[in-house]
Design a protein around this nucleic acid. Structure first.
Lengths: 206, 206, 206, 206
DNA sequence: TTTTAAGCGAGACGGTACGTCCGGTCTTCGG
DNA sequence: CCGAAGACCGGACGTACCGTCTCGCTTAAAA
């Protein structure tokens, strides 16, 4: 049996039971969905997962971290490949799916994770890299296909374009001032589609 | 001075000391700015404000509620009136100010309040009505002036237009994936300015 | 309305409503009987009596004091006069009545008052003077009639004799190690009756 | 010493630090003696013992329970064996010691525990079994020796005899209407010594 | 096979904060 | 102008979780 070269020390002692980690994440996910972030306490997870508290701390440093792990594990990024038809319709389909998710109870979990990310840099980084970035990347890819086939004008700044799509969705999710519908997605897309590269209307003075 | 007829019952008992409320809010605001939402505990507020814990509970039901009250009291809405020049430049100035605030430490408080609003309906409502709505209203007014003088095309849906402006700003504030600059604001405005009323590029099938 | 001549200062201001005092005492008595001493809080009395807390404080200094007042008002001393027959049978009847009271739920109130008296000198004094002393006085009177008609030998020390009668009754009431029956009273009386004045069996050395 | 086979489960979890329990009891005892029962608050104990409040609650359900435990641990029962001389003089010595204790400041603690026992069945049981019963048992043993050597007549009811001795002592302790002296003890003993078995003076009619 | 290091459950522990009860005190108005 | 109503501050309550720790037991790779 080949030893792992240098990065991993030769595993001594009893190996971790994979079921433990799984049980914790399942419990955390369930608590998150039922009671929101405040329901995800180490105490409750331990009870629900049939695991002792110190065991949880062996895997994660605190409760929000477990919640984030549970959230990220469940959440796959939008898949860009599988969609048939034109690039634009694939893009639309992808964003419709996202809107549907945001409108569903799962949206509350997303909101909870955004909230959690506000109080800890580590969580913010994880959420940004694992959730935000993946969604942006998937959409970025489709946007490039749209640009390639000229169904969308090439924007000045791809990041801003992505912000124009995702920003309003998260905004409605977090503020709750208006519903997140497929029609709303269409309106956003419509704006992006029609945006043409030009010089700014009025260059900022300062 | 005539006593208010029916709306206010003729105050029985010892009236509340206005300094109490003020001291609590000042303490809460300070804690919020220094340590974020998690630092705003009833315990700490009481200590800092020289007030007993039960007194705080007489005013607000829990710590996030105090934090929200402190936040909202401080935060005046953007003033639409004072700006000179064209409507468009007034709009731009207003949003520049908002971007500056979001980029400054105060932005962290806004993010904290968004986070707080995710776990309690009551807080969400207060934040939406007192902060979100005011910003939107102020911007709405300026947008209408812009539309009136034809510097911006009349949009299909005013709310979506506002979401297109505020959404990306909050998105960057909360995710931290990119900085909030005046240039970013200009790019957003640029998009809105150029959006013309048309039929959707491709009507959603379902 | 005739003014009181000179002994009382010419009552200024609004006179106390006698129903207030009564309502407080009734409420306190009821709480005492239902929930024991710990249930007699100023808060609860105020609520039950439909009176504000400061009002209660105007009459008594604290909750146990109200409880004591309520207890003492209700409790009349044993009446020595009304009993027919011999002095000894009157004495027996009086003590039977006391035993019955101690065995009844009312006994718990007596025990509660004894307990209350342990933590405040003022209450102890009131209880001693209003309850203990009255019972002792009534029994003392009957004992003297018994001694006069030679049904009981004259004791060395009347106080000790009273202690020999009341002590065991209170002891059982407070410790609850044995029931308080009429038979028990008879046994106590029997002991006292047979005690003859003599020199002590063995004089204490020191 | 062999491990107990089945009665004790094989200690799970971290064992309790014996110093914790001791520190709590010492603190409680001290507070009890200095300030009476009302001074024994969980807060004060925790502070004094250098222990957190929840830790105290892990051992006892409330403050009076801690006070009772502290009281009972300190208080050894009167020792019947060590006394030289006749049984009667041993009995007298034992009761003199009790009277001395009751007259000393320690007596206030006893009174406080009697008071505490009035409001909770659990405390009453503990006090009865650990303090009252022990004292009675020790005295019972000496009484039997006295009866055996004919220095005291055999009583109808041993319990009543014990009540005749202890009752008046507690009565004076709790009511404070008269001092608890050795002479008082002698008078009580004198009464018991002279009590002869006979039929009741006058059989109760009802 | 025997070590031996780690996984793991249980629970003690010091803490922080919670939200509540109640205690006394002070202020304003109604009778 | 007293007295009732009610807001005030503050002490203590009992609880929930936190994060750390010490145990005893179990497991499986290394020696």
């Amino acid at each position: 049996m080949p030893r792992q070269a240098s990065s991993a020390p030769p595993v001594r002692g009893r190996p971790r039971d994979p079921r433990t980690r799984a049980a914790i994440l399942v419990a955390a996910r369930d608590l998150l969905e039922r009671g929101g972030l405040t329901a995800v306490t180490i105490e409750a997870i331990a009870q629900k997962a049939g695991v002792s508290r110190p065991t949880i701390y062996r895997y994660w440093p605190n409760a929000p971290a477990v919640a984030m792990a549970a959230f990220l594990e469940k959440t796959g990024a939008a898949s860009a490949a599988a969609s048939p038809g034109s690039a634009l319709s694939a893009l639309r389909a992808q964003l419709h799916a996202l809107a549907d998710a945001f409108a569903a109870p799962a949206g509350r979990s997303v909101a909870a994770m955004v909230a959690a990310a506000q109080s800890e840099t580590e969580l913010a980084k994880a959420f940004r890299n694992e959730f935000i970035a993946r969604n942006r990347d998937a959409t970025w890819a489709l946007l490039e296909r749209c640009i390639a086939d000229r169904s969308i004008a090439e924007p000045d700044d791809m990041d801003v374009t992505l912000d124009l799509i995702f920003g309003p969705l998260f905004y409605r999710l977090l503020m709750g001032h208006a519903p997140i519908t497929r029609g709303f997605v269409d309106q956003l897309l419509d704006t992006v589609v029609r945006a043409r590269r030009r010089r700014p209307v009025q260059p900022p003075a300062g």
